[in-house]
Nucleic acid binder design. Structure first.
Lengths: 175, 175
DNA sequence: CGCTCACATTCCTATACTGACATGTCAAAA
DNA sequence: TTTTGACATGTCAGTATAGGAATGTGAGCG
Protein backbone atom coordinates (compact mmCIF):
# COMPACT_ATOMS: atom_id res chain seq x y z
CA UNK A 1 0.00 0.00 0.00
CA UNK A 2 2.96 2.32 -0.46
CA UNK A 3 1.45 3.81 -3.58
CA UNK A 4 -1.26 5.27 -1.39
CA UNK A 5 1.27 7.08 0.74
CA UNK A 6 3.44 8.10 -2.16
CA UNK A 7 0.45 9.94 -3.59
CA UNK A 8 -0.30 11.51 -0.22
CA UNK A 9 3.31 12.64 -0.03
CA UNK A 10 3.24 14.28 -3.43
CA UNK A 11 -0.07 15.97 -2.69
CA UNK A 12 1.28 17.20 0.64
CA UNK A 13 3.76 19.23 -1.41
CA UNK A 14 1.04 20.83 -3.54
CA UNK A 15 -2.28 19.94 -5.20
CA UNK A 16 -2.15 18.13 -8.51
CA UNK A 17 -4.22 16.10 -10.94
CA UNK A 18 -3.82 12.40 -11.64
CA UNK A 19 -2.01 13.27 -14.81
CA UNK A 20 0.45 15.56 -13.01
CA UNK A 21 1.08 12.91 -10.41
CA UNK A 22 1.73 10.33 -13.06
CA UNK A 23 4.42 12.54 -14.58
CA UNK A 24 5.99 13.24 -11.23
CA UNK A 25 6.05 9.54 -10.54
CA UNK A 26 7.82 8.86 -13.77
CA UNK A 27 10.48 11.45 -13.14
CA UNK A 28 11.24 11.11 -9.47
CA UNK A 29 9.64 8.19 -7.66
CA UNK A 30 9.84 5.66 -10.48
CA UNK A 31 13.26 4.60 -9.23
CA UNK A 32 11.88 3.48 -5.90
CA UNK A 33 8.19 2.84 -6.61
CA UNK A 34 7.01 2.51 -10.20
CA UNK A 35 3.27 2.82 -10.73
CA UNK A 36 1.01 2.53 -13.70
CA UNK A 37 -1.73 4.94 -14.62
CA UNK A 38 -4.53 2.50 -13.87
CA UNK A 39 -3.21 1.91 -10.38
CA UNK A 40 -2.77 5.59 -9.79
CA UNK A 41 -6.24 6.75 -10.79
CA UNK A 42 -7.83 3.94 -8.83
CA UNK A 43 -5.88 4.82 -5.74
CA UNK A 44 -6.80 8.51 -6.05
CA UNK A 45 -10.45 7.55 -6.03
CA UNK A 46 -9.98 5.39 -2.95
CA UNK A 47 -8.05 8.16 -1.18
CA UNK A 48 -10.86 10.60 -1.92
CA UNK A 49 -13.45 8.11 -0.64
CA UNK A 50 -11.41 7.76 2.54
CA UNK A 51 -11.33 11.52 2.99
CA UNK A 52 -7.55 11.72 2.87
CA UNK A 53 -7.63 13.90 -0.22
CA UNK A 54 -10.35 15.95 -1.86
CA UNK A 55 -11.13 17.29 -5.31
CA UNK A 56 -10.01 20.90 -4.98
CA UNK A 57 -10.64 22.21 -8.47
CA UNK A 58 -11.72 21.02 -11.87
CA UNK A 59 -10.20 22.33 -15.04
CA UNK A 60 -10.63 21.68 -18.72
CA UNK A 61 -10.95 18.11 -20.00
CA UNK A 62 -12.44 16.85 -16.75
CA UNK A 63 -9.10 17.59 -15.13
CA UNK A 64 -9.46 17.24 -11.38
CA UNK A 65 -6.93 18.69 -9.01
CA UNK A 66 -6.73 16.90 -5.71
CA UNK A 67 -5.55 18.45 -2.47
CA UNK A 68 -4.52 16.68 0.69
CA UNK A 69 -6.81 17.05 3.70
CA UNK A 70 -5.85 17.35 7.35
CA UNK A 71 -6.70 13.68 7.78
CA UNK A 72 -4.39 12.96 4.87
CA UNK A 73 -1.50 14.85 6.43
CA UNK A 74 -2.04 13.00 9.66
CA UNK A 75 -2.03 9.67 7.84
CA UNK A 76 1.17 10.63 6.01
CA UNK A 77 2.94 11.58 9.23
CA UNK A 78 1.72 8.39 10.88
CA UNK A 79 3.07 6.31 8.00
CA UNK A 80 6.42 8.08 8.09
CA UNK A 81 7.02 7.88 11.79
CA UNK A 82 5.11 4.91 13.11
CA UNK A 83 4.69 2.31 10.38
CA UNK A 84 7.62 -0.05 10.06
CA UNK A 85 8.97 0.13 6.49
CA UNK A 86 8.97 -3.14 4.61
CA UNK A 87 12.52 -4.03 3.79
CA UNK A 88 11.38 -6.10 0.89
CA UNK A 89 14.10 -8.34 -0.29
CA UNK A 90 12.76 -9.49 -3.61
CA UNK A 91 15.70 -9.35 -5.96
CA UNK A 92 15.49 -11.16 -9.26
CA UNK A 93 19.10 -10.50 -10.26
CA UNK A 94 20.45 -11.82 -6.97
CA UNK A 95 18.16 -14.85 -7.00
CA UNK A 96 19.88 -16.01 -10.18
CA UNK A 97 23.23 -15.95 -8.44
CA UNK A 98 22.10 -18.88 -6.31
CA UNK A 99 21.79 -20.97 -9.47
CA UNK A 100 24.87 -19.95 -11.42
CA UNK A 101 26.43 -23.32 -10.65
CA UNK A 102 23.90 -24.75 -13.11
CA UNK A 103 25.59 -23.13 -16.10
CA UNK A 104 29.18 -23.07 -17.40
CA UNK A 105 31.60 -21.03 -15.32
CA UNK A 106 32.22 -18.86 -18.38
CA UNK A 107 28.52 -18.09 -18.60
CA UNK A 108 28.40 -17.35 -14.89
CA UNK A 109 31.25 -14.88 -15.30
CA UNK A 110 29.44 -13.33 -18.25
CA UNK A 111 26.34 -12.91 -16.13
CA UNK A 112 28.22 -11.25 -13.27
CA UNK A 113 30.19 -8.96 -15.55
CA UNK A 114 26.99 -7.95 -17.27
CA UNK A 115 25.45 -7.17 -13.91
CA UNK A 116 28.50 -5.08 -13.02
CA UNK A 117 28.10 -3.10 -16.23
CA UNK A 118 24.40 -2.54 -15.57
CA UNK A 119 25.04 -1.28 -12.05
CA UNK A 120 27.74 1.07 -13.32
CA UNK A 121 25.40 2.33 -16.02
CA UNK A 122 22.65 2.86 -13.51
CA UNK A 123 25.05 4.82 -11.32
CA UNK A 124 26.03 6.91 -14.32
CA UNK A 125 22.39 7.60 -15.12
CA UNK A 126 21.79 8.75 -11.56
CA UNK A 127 24.86 10.98 -11.72
CA UNK A 128 23.41 12.48 -14.91
CA UNK A 129 20.18 13.22 -13.10
CA UNK A 130 22.06 14.74 -10.19
CA UNK A 131 23.96 17.02 -12.55
CA UNK A 132 21.14 18.08 -14.86
CA UNK A 133 18.19 18.61 -12.55
CA UNK A 134 17.79 22.18 -11.34
CA UNK A 135 17.66 21.34 -7.66
CA UNK A 136 16.24 23.92 -5.37
CA UNK A 137 16.36 24.14 -1.60
CA UNK A 138 12.81 22.94 -1.11
CA UNK A 139 12.22 20.11 1.29
CA UNK A 140 11.23 17.82 -1.52
CA UNK A 141 14.39 18.41 -3.52
CA UNK A 142 16.61 18.06 -0.49
CA UNK A 143 15.03 14.74 0.36
CA UNK A 144 15.18 13.61 -3.25
CA UNK A 145 18.92 14.25 -3.20
CA UNK A 146 19.27 12.08 -0.10
CA UNK A 147 17.44 9.29 -1.91
CA UNK A 148 19.59 9.79 -4.98
CA UNK A 149 22.75 9.50 -2.91
CA UNK A 150 21.44 6.17 -1.67
CA UNK A 151 21.07 5.03 -5.27
CA UNK A 152 24.63 6.08 -6.06
CA UNK A 153 26.10 4.27 -3.09
CA UNK A 154 24.07 1.09 -3.47
CA UNK A 155 24.74 0.78 -7.19
CA UNK A 156 28.43 1.31 -6.54
CA UNK A 157 28.40 -1.42 -3.88
CA UNK A 158 26.57 -3.75 -6.23
CA UNK A 159 28.94 -3.05 -9.10
CA UNK A 160 31.99 -3.66 -6.93
CA UNK A 161 30.42 -6.85 -5.63
CA UNK A 162 29.61 -8.15 -9.11
CA UNK A 163 33.18 -7.52 -10.26
CA UNK A 164 34.51 -9.29 -7.20
CA UNK A 165 32.13 -12.22 -7.70
CA UNK A 166 33.10 -12.56 -11.35
CA UNK A 167 36.73 -12.76 -10.21
CA UNK A 168 35.84 -15.42 -7.64
CA UNK A 169 34.11 -17.62 -10.20
CA UNK A 170 36.89 -17.12 -12.74
CA UNK A 171 39.49 -17.90 -10.06
CA UNK A 172 37.77 -21.15 -9.07
CA UNK A 173 37.90 -22.27 -12.68
CA UNK A 174 41.62 -21.58 -13.15
CA UNK A 175 42.78 -22.96 -9.81
CA UNK B 1 7.62 -15.40 -12.48
CA UNK B 2 10.89 -15.80 -10.63
CA UNK B 3 9.36 -18.26 -8.21
CA UNK B 4 8.99 -20.66 -11.09
CA UNK B 5 12.69 -20.53 -11.84
CA UNK B 6 13.73 -20.56 -8.21
CA UNK B 7 11.93 -23.89 -7.87
CA UNK B 8 13.54 -25.19 -11.04
CA UNK B 9 16.91 -24.15 -9.69
CA UNK B 10 16.42 -25.97 -6.41
CA UNK B 11 15.17 -29.08 -8.19
CA UNK B 12 18.13 -28.95 -10.55
CA UNK B 13 20.28 -29.57 -7.47
CA UNK B 14 18.30 -32.63 -6.43
CA UNK B 15 14.70 -33.90 -6.32
CA UNK B 16 12.52 -32.74 -3.45
CA UNK B 17 8.95 -32.47 -2.26
CA UNK B 18 6.99 -29.26 -1.89
CA UNK B 19 7.58 -29.40 1.81
CA UNK B 20 11.35 -29.75 1.38
CA UNK B 21 11.37 -26.86 -1.06
CA UNK B 22 9.43 -24.70 1.34
CA UNK B 23 12.04 -25.27 4.01
CA UNK B 24 14.88 -24.59 1.64
CA UNK B 25 13.17 -21.39 0.62
CA UNK B 26 12.87 -20.28 4.19
CA UNK B 27 16.51 -20.94 4.97
CA UNK B 28 18.31 -19.76 1.87
CA UNK B 29 16.23 -17.97 -0.74
CA UNK B 30 13.92 -16.12 1.61
CA UNK B 31 16.36 -13.21 1.68
CA UNK B 32 16.01 -12.62 -2.03
CA UNK B 33 12.67 -14.17 -2.89
CA UNK B 34 10.20 -14.98 -0.11
CA UNK B 35 7.38 -17.34 -1.06
CA UNK B 36 4.39 -18.74 0.75
CA UNK B 37 3.35 -22.32 0.75
CA UNK B 38 0.22 -21.66 -1.30
CA UNK B 39 2.23 -20.03 -4.05
CA UNK B 40 4.77 -22.80 -3.98
CA UNK B 41 2.40 -25.75 -4.29
CA UNK B 42 0.46 -23.99 -7.01
CA UNK B 43 3.60 -23.31 -8.97
CA UNK B 44 4.78 -26.90 -8.61
CA UNK B 45 1.54 -28.08 -10.18
CA UNK B 46 1.93 -25.66 -13.05
CA UNK B 47 5.55 -26.69 -13.59
CA UNK B 48 4.49 -30.32 -13.72
CA UNK B 49 1.71 -29.49 -16.19
CA UNK B 50 4.26 -27.70 -18.35
CA UNK B 51 6.54 -30.72 -18.30
CA UNK B 52 9.43 -28.86 -16.68
CA UNK B 53 9.35 -31.12 -13.63
CA UNK B 54 7.78 -34.51 -12.96
CA UNK B 55 6.59 -36.46 -9.94
CA UNK B 56 9.49 -38.83 -9.39
CA UNK B 57 8.40 -40.70 -6.28
CA UNK B 58 5.66 -40.70 -3.70
CA UNK B 59 6.25 -41.37 -0.04
CA UNK B 60 4.11 -41.51 3.09
CA UNK B 61 1.52 -38.81 3.73
CA UNK B 62 1.01 -38.12 0.04
CA UNK B 63 4.55 -36.83 -0.09
CA UNK B 64 5.48 -36.28 -3.72
CA UNK B 65 9.07 -35.84 -4.78
CA UNK B 66 9.52 -33.83 -7.92
CA UNK B 67 12.49 -34.07 -10.25
CA UNK B 68 13.52 -31.64 -12.94
CA UNK B 69 13.18 -32.82 -16.55
CA UNK B 70 15.49 -32.11 -19.46
CA UNK B 71 13.02 -29.45 -20.62
CA UNK B 72 13.23 -27.97 -17.13
CA UNK B 73 17.02 -27.80 -17.20
CA UNK B 74 16.89 -26.13 -20.59
CA UNK B 75 14.38 -23.58 -19.30
CA UNK B 76 16.57 -22.87 -16.27
CA UNK B 77 19.67 -22.31 -18.40
CA UNK B 78 17.67 -20.11 -20.74
CA UNK B 79 16.44 -18.01 -17.85
CA UNK B 80 19.91 -17.66 -16.39
CA UNK B 81 21.71 -16.71 -19.56
CA UNK B 82 19.19 -15.09 -21.86
CA UNK B 83 16.41 -13.50 -19.85
CA UNK B 84 17.19 -10.00 -18.67
CA UNK B 85 16.89 -9.86 -14.87
CA UNK B 86 14.39 -7.39 -13.54
CA UNK B 87 16.22 -4.84 -11.49
CA UNK B 88 13.12 -4.15 -9.50
CA UNK B 89 13.43 -0.93 -7.68
CA UNK B 90 10.52 -1.10 -5.32
CA UNK B 91 11.86 0.13 -2.02
CA UNK B 92 9.42 1.13 0.68
CA UNK B 93 12.07 2.42 3.07
CA UNK B 94 13.65 4.65 0.44
CA UNK B 95 10.31 5.92 -0.79
CA UNK B 96 9.71 7.42 2.62
CA UNK B 97 12.91 9.40 2.37
CA UNK B 98 11.32 11.47 -0.40
CA UNK B 99 8.73 12.68 2.09
CA UNK B 100 10.78 13.25 5.22
CA UNK B 101 10.43 17.01 4.71
CA UNK B 102 6.81 16.53 5.78
CA UNK B 103 7.76 15.73 9.38
CA UNK B 104 9.94 17.45 11.98
CA UNK B 105 13.69 17.32 11.29
CA UNK B 106 14.10 15.50 14.58
CA UNK B 107 11.67 12.83 13.44
CA UNK B 108 13.44 12.59 10.10
CA UNK B 109 16.73 12.03 11.91
CA UNK B 110 15.06 9.40 14.06
CA UNK B 111 13.82 7.63 10.96
CA UNK B 112 17.24 7.61 9.31
CA UNK B 113 19.04 6.48 12.45
CA UNK B 114 16.55 3.71 12.88
CA UNK B 115 17.15 2.63 9.32
CA UNK B 116 20.89 2.65 9.96
CA UNK B 117 20.41 0.40 12.97
CA UNK B 118 18.21 -1.99 10.98
CA UNK B 119 20.76 -2.26 8.18
CA UNK B 120 23.54 -2.92 10.68
CA UNK B 121 21.42 -5.57 12.39
CA UNK B 122 20.66 -7.19 9.09
CA UNK B 123 24.36 -7.25 8.26
CA UNK B 124 25.04 -8.84 11.64
CA UNK B 125 22.40 -11.47 11.01
CA UNK B 126 23.97 -12.32 7.69
CA UNK B 127 27.39 -12.55 9.30
CA UNK B 128 25.88 -14.96 11.81
CA UNK B 129 24.58 -17.10 8.99
CA UNK B 130 27.95 -17.00 7.26
CA UNK B 131 29.67 -18.16 10.44
CA UNK B 132 27.24 -20.84 11.56
CA UNK B 133 26.24 -22.60 8.35
CA UNK B 134 28.36 -25.64 7.53
CA UNK B 135 29.26 -24.57 4.00
CA UNK B 136 30.50 -27.21 1.67
CA UNK B 137 32.21 -26.85 -1.67
CA UNK B 138 29.11 -27.70 -3.67
CA UNK B 139 28.10 -25.37 -6.45
CA UNK B 140 25.01 -24.35 -4.55
CA UNK B 141 26.89 -23.38 -1.41
CA UNK B 142 29.56 -21.51 -3.34
CA UNK B 143 26.91 -19.49 -5.12
CA UNK B 144 24.98 -18.91 -1.93
CA UNK B 145 28.13 -17.42 -0.41
CA UNK B 146 28.44 -15.05 -3.36
CA UNK B 147 24.86 -13.93 -2.77
CA UNK B 148 25.50 -13.56 0.93
CA UNK B 149 28.50 -11.36 0.27
CA UNK B 150 26.22 -9.15 -1.78
CA UNK B 151 23.92 -8.83 1.21
CA UNK B 152 26.80 -7.87 3.45
CA UNK B 153 28.08 -5.21 1.10
CA UNK B 154 24.72 -3.72 0.27
CA UNK B 155 23.57 -3.56 3.88
CA UNK B 156 26.87 -1.92 4.81
CA UNK B 157 26.40 0.66 2.04
CA UNK B 158 22.84 1.33 3.18
CA UNK B 159 23.86 1.67 6.81
CA UNK B 160 26.65 4.11 5.96
CA UNK B 161 24.27 6.07 3.77
CA UNK B 162 21.60 6.28 6.46
CA UNK B 163 24.13 7.54 8.97
CA UNK B 164 25.37 10.12 6.50
CA UNK B 165 21.82 11.20 5.65
CA UNK B 166 20.92 11.56 9.32
CA UNK B 167 23.95 13.83 9.66
CA UNK B 168 22.86 15.88 6.67
CA UNK B 169 19.39 16.46 8.04
CA UNK B 170 20.72 17.23 11.52
CA UNK B 171 23.30 19.60 9.98
CA UNK B 172 20.65 21.51 8.03
CA UNK B 173 18.73 22.06 11.23
CA UNK B 174 21.65 23.43 13.21
CA UNK B 175 23.12 25.62 10.45
C1' DC C 1 -12.60 25.30 -40.40
C1' DG C 2 -10.55 20.63 -39.81
C1' DC C 3 -6.58 18.27 -38.26
C1' DT C 4 -3.48 16.65 -34.98
C1' DC C 5 -1.42 16.10 -30.69
C1' DA C 6 -1.04 16.50 -25.89
C1' DC C 7 -4.05 16.22 -22.13
C1' DA C 8 -6.90 13.39 -18.90
C1' DT C 9 -9.61 9.71 -17.28
C1' DT C 10 -11.92 5.11 -17.19
C1' DC C 11 -12.26 0.30 -17.82
C1' DC C 12 -10.68 -4.38 -18.70
C1' DT C 13 -8.10 -8.67 -18.39
C1' DA C 14 -4.63 -11.38 -16.45
C1' DT C 15 -1.32 -12.66 -13.24
C1' DA C 16 1.05 -12.51 -8.68
C1' DC C 17 0.95 -12.47 -3.98
C1' DT C 18 -0.65 -12.65 0.97
C1' DG C 19 -2.62 -14.81 4.72
C1' DA C 20 -5.72 -17.69 6.48
C1' DC C 21 -8.11 -21.82 6.58
C1' DA C 22 -8.97 -26.86 5.68
C1' DT C 23 -7.57 -31.59 5.37
C1' DG C 24 -5.29 -35.42 6.37
C1' DT C 25 -1.05 -38.72 7.85
C1' DC C 26 2.24 -40.78 10.66
C1' DA C 27 5.41 -41.40 14.86
C1' DA C 28 6.26 -41.21 19.34
C1' DA C 29 5.34 -39.81 23.89
C1' DA C 30 2.16 -39.84 27.87
C1' DT D 1 -4.92 -45.66 24.06
C1' DT D 2 -5.00 -40.90 23.44
C1' DT D 3 -2.83 -37.00 22.35
C1' DT D 4 0.53 -34.21 20.48
C1' DG D 5 3.31 -32.39 17.05
C1' DA D 6 5.79 -32.62 12.84
C1' DC D 7 4.83 -33.80 8.19
C1' DA D 8 2.45 -32.73 3.73
C1' DT D 9 -0.77 -30.82 0.56
C1' DG D 10 -4.69 -28.12 -1.02
C1' DT D 11 -8.14 -24.14 -1.45
C1' DC D 12 -9.97 -19.53 -1.02
C1' DA D 13 -10.88 -14.58 -0.77
C1' DG D 14 -8.88 -10.28 -1.15
C1' DT D 15 -5.50 -7.16 -2.83
C1' DA D 16 -1.67 -5.48 -5.82
C1' DT D 17 0.41 -4.95 -10.13
C1' DA D 18 1.00 -4.93 -15.15
C1' DG D 19 -0.31 -3.37 -19.45
C1' DG D 20 -3.22 -1.92 -22.69
C1' DA D 21 -7.67 -0.50 -24.96
C1' DA D 22 -11.26 2.87 -25.18
C1' DT D 23 -13.02 7.39 -24.66
C1' DG D 24 -13.23 11.98 -24.85
C1' DT D 25 -11.38 17.22 -24.49
C1' DG D 26 -8.99 21.37 -25.65
C1' DA D 27 -5.26 24.18 -27.86
C1' DG D 28 -2.72 25.42 -31.63
C1' DC D 29 -1.73 25.28 -36.44
C1' DG D 30 -2.31 25.20 -41.42
Amino acid sequence: MSLRHALLGLLADHPASGYDLLKRFDTSLAFVWPATQSQLYGELKRLADAGLIEAAATGPRRRTDYAITEAGRAELAHWLTEVEPEHSRRNDALLRVFFLWAVDPAQAVDYLEREARLYRQFGEALRQVADTVAWDESGFDRCARLALENGLRVSEANAAWAEWAAGEVAGDTDG
